[in-house]
Design a protein around this nucleic acid. Structure first.
Length: 299
DNA sequence: CTCGACTCCTGCTGGC
DNA sequence: TGCCAGCAGGAGTCGA
């Protein structure tokens, strides 16, 4: 599910309830998600104070005062759910919300809630992930970027060093279609199926175009398109389709502004309309995943 | 090396 | 109404 804008939004919500707070109690409800949890995960989190947050691609990093960092990836269906442990129910808790007792214990997890953290000041944070494609790890803060899951990531698309020249260099010689190239987290970190489609549309580049033909002029259109769509989506709180909700329970709104994603058969915003002979947005399958694009404006 | 197919897992939707 | 195939925002691994 979540791509860079959703992960950024989740991280900000998490920071609001966790930064500067001490984790009084943590617990797991199973031994693994995508991979086994790190040894003694709950014990290593319990008692730690969260000192800061960072996002790298689609990964959230929470720094702890124990010199370790907590790594979180939401996979396809992961959610982080924050709610007060005591006090009156609030609307965004959802129908499955349960309160803990004053000590934060004896609180049944909701379905697929694999990791629970409770802060000293009374917030319960649950990592819920039905499909379990997400993961959690702990690592020394000093070596964050050398972690096996982070070491191969490409540039951050919203940083200054993500330039047309940098993207051109990463695409040079690649025979893969652009759709696949931009999904490759080693080319640029954080794009997924939605924002690849939206960025290629904005740049007027076909998802079928081979990557090695993009360096140069097309890369000069594509880089600003990627930055713009990601910034707009972050500003809208991300896209809420199925599982994704912000940590505060609000829905993202960017799904209302998709130009092509999940709009098969509808006229694209640049075309005059289906009745004028325009083909409209097409859905094709590339490497097993849906691609949405406008064959008239994307070349 | 690079690329595409396959795989992990659960839940929802749409067509019959 | 009920059932089931197909599809879903990710990405590591494997074989060609």
């Amino acid at each position: 599910m979540p791509e860079l804008p959703e992960v950024e939004t989740v991280m900000r919500g998490l920071a609001a309830v966790l930064e500067g707070r001490r984790i009084a109690h943590a617990a797991t409800t199973r031994p693994d998600m995508r991979w086994p949890f790190p040894d003694r995960l709950a014990e290593r989190l319990s008692g730690a104070t969260v000192t800061g947050f960072r996002r790298r691609g689609k990964y959230i990093l929470a720094r702890l005062d124990t010199a370790e960092s907590l790594l979180i990836h939401l996979g396809m269906s992961g959610r982080l759910v924050a709610r007060p442990m005591n006090g009156p129910p609030v609307p965004w808790m959802g129908p499955t919300g349960r309160f803990s007792d004053a000590r934060g214990h004896n609180m049944p997890p909701e379905a697929h809630e694999h990791l629970v953290m409770e802060t000293e000041d009374g917030t319960r944070i649950g990592f819920v992930d039905p499909r379990r494609f997400g993961c959690v790890d702990l690592m020394p803060t000093a070596g964050e970027d050398r972690h096996r899951l982070l070491a191969g990531l490409g540039p951050e698309p919203l940083e200054e060093d993500f330039t047309p020249e940098a993207l051109s260099a990463a695409l040079a010689g690649k025979r893969a279609p652009m759709k696949a190239a931009l999904l490759d987290q080693g080319v640029v970190a954080g794009l997924g199926n939605i924002y690849v489609a939206e960025a290629l549309f904005r740049a007027g580049i076909s998802p079928k175009r081979l990557a090695h033909t993009v360096p140069g002029k097309r890369a000069e259109r594509l880089v600003p398109a990627i930055k713009a769509v990601l910034e707009e989506a972050i500003g809208a709180g991300g896209s809420s389709l199925r599982d994704y909700v912000r940590a505060d329970g609000e829905l993202g709104r960017f799904q209302d502004r998709f130009a092509v994603y999940d709009r098969d058969g509808q006229p694209c915003p640049l075309c005059p309309g289906l009745e004028s002979g325009c083909t409209g947005v097409k859905r094709i399958v590339q490497s097993g995943r849906s691609t949405f694009w406008c064959p008239r404006t994307q070349r």
